[in-house]
């Protein structure tokens, strides 16, 4: 067991963890943040994407101790109470969600992009989502949702 100091969705915690765990298992099994999904366990599908210190990472291949001292955002921390983030709303409104299994990872990849660059080009959106596989939507409406959320964020909207 090692001591992990980490901030998850705005809450600081100091916990004992098994260092063999990956970050995704820690989030899902220990914190019950099951919104982070496991689609492959090898960083090849993006379903487990969370934001670590501002960057999108596939939490299934991040050793949990890599999170030491870091700030982690998961899908559960994106909305502000009952107020959804513009990205979440646009995913819903634009039809970017089908089965929903890739959705948390997609939203986290989108948020990592838009937090840094709220006026992305189509290619920047594609690059940001290239590591997130969706088998349902053909990505069309996902990219539309990201663009539309970007516009709202440029107008000053966030959930927080």
């Amino acid at each position: 067991m090692e001591k992990l100091n980490v901030t998850v969705n705005g809450k600081f915690m100091s916990v004992d963890v098994d260092p063999e765990l990956c970050l995704a298992d820690f989030l899902r099994d220990r914190l019950f943040l099951t919104g982070t999904k496991i689609g492959c366990g090898k960083g090849e599908c993006g379903a487990c994407t969370v934001i670590m210190d501002g960057k999108a990472v596939t939490s299934c291949i991040i050793p949990v101790m890599r999170a030491e001292g870091s700030v982690i955002e998961t899908i559960e921390g994106v909305s502000d109470g009952d107020k959804l983030h513009p990205i979440q709303e646009e995913f819903i409104n634009k039809g970017a969600i089908q089965c929903g299994f890739c959705t948390p990872g997609m939203i986290m990849s989108s948020k990592a992009l838009l937090d840094r660059n709220n006026d992305p080009t189509a290619d920047e959106v594609k690059e940001a989502l290239g590591g997130n596989i969706c088998r349902c939507t053909g990505y069309v409406k996902i990219e539309e949702a990201v663009m539309s959320a970007a516009e709202r964020m440029r107008n000053g909207e966030t959930s927080k």
Binding site: G43, G46, K55, A56, V57, T58, A128, G131, N132
Partner: peptide, 9 residues
């Protein structure tokens, strides 16, 4: 390499 997430780490 890989994907943005992979390149980020």
């Amino acid at each position: 390499v890989g994907s943005l997430q992979i390149r980020n780490t």
